[in-house]
Amino acid sequence: MKYKSLLFFTLFLTYYDANAQNRGKGLEEKVRNLKDLTAKYSMISLNLNRFKEYVRSPPRDYSFVVMFTAMAPSRKCAICQHVYDEYTIVANSFRFSSAYSDKLFFGIVDFDEGSDIFQMLRLNTAPVIMHFPAKGKPKPADSMDFERAGIHAEAIAKWIQDRTDVQIRIFRPPNYSGVAAFLVLFIFIAIFFYVRRNNLEFLYNKQMWAIIAVFICFAMVSGQMWNQIRGPPFFHRTKNGPVYINGGSHGQFVLESYIVAMLNCAVVVGMILMIEAAGGVNGKDVRPQEGKRRRFYSVVGLVLVCVFFSLLLSVFRAKTQGYPYR
């Protein structure tokens, strides 16, 4: 009889509504369950029942950090994967660090498995990382702001420290991809040289070196470094059609910098054409039958220089208010 009632009680606990279930279970048991769950994986994947039980219902003395995401490929959430990777790093760092305690747990909710949780919390974007404090309801600051803090694991750890006072030292699995790529490149070049060891004339090709050097100049002068560091959009879409040129002088779009590089390139090509047409640096022998062709090239070069430089000027003017002096 005793056993029966216990069994019944267990069944009751399992199948009755979640609230009653939680009231039944004590805090210690919940923590024990959670610890079991984190033994294998540092993150606990949550469905509605678990979410209600461990995250929302009252007897808690631990904080819960939950990421809401949509990982399924059909959802086409590109950033989710990045955030997931970084979040995993944070969770693992915490799980295997000396600071590991049962005061903080990491959870994850995928939209395709727990869309009702999304509805419950009125979330309509993903990814979101939220913190559910041990006491009280989550405040607005308890959902992390990716736009300001960024999505790096360090930023997440800092935010968690902000909210829970648990300090997590991020331990990244060392990234060998850079080293590997470098090695592969190096080996590739070495093989290339070895294969062509009897024919290294191309290294003495000044034209090639000159082209490389000039292209580095174009890239830098058109602000590719700025693009690299700031990561601007390719171009801007507005209601009135796409905008290619950023209106302010402190910003630029990727496409805009390509346009500028092309304009610079055209001016340089024009000038080189003119010089070559006029006889080149070394004062080549001038042959009479080439006169017409050279004049033609010279005019083409001049037109290139004038047209593309004035285009460059007009692009610059579009960016700088009140540029045409005075």
Binding site: G223, N264, I275
Partner: peptide, 21 residues
């Protein structure tokens, strides 16, 4: 801060597209 192309142009003007020559 890093440099945009417009500040290159502002500081060097026509020289920015002739110095590669």
């Amino acid at each position: 801060q890093p440099t945009t192309w417009s500040s290159f142009f502002f500081d060097l003007h026509v020289l920015v597209c002739t110095f590669p020559v």
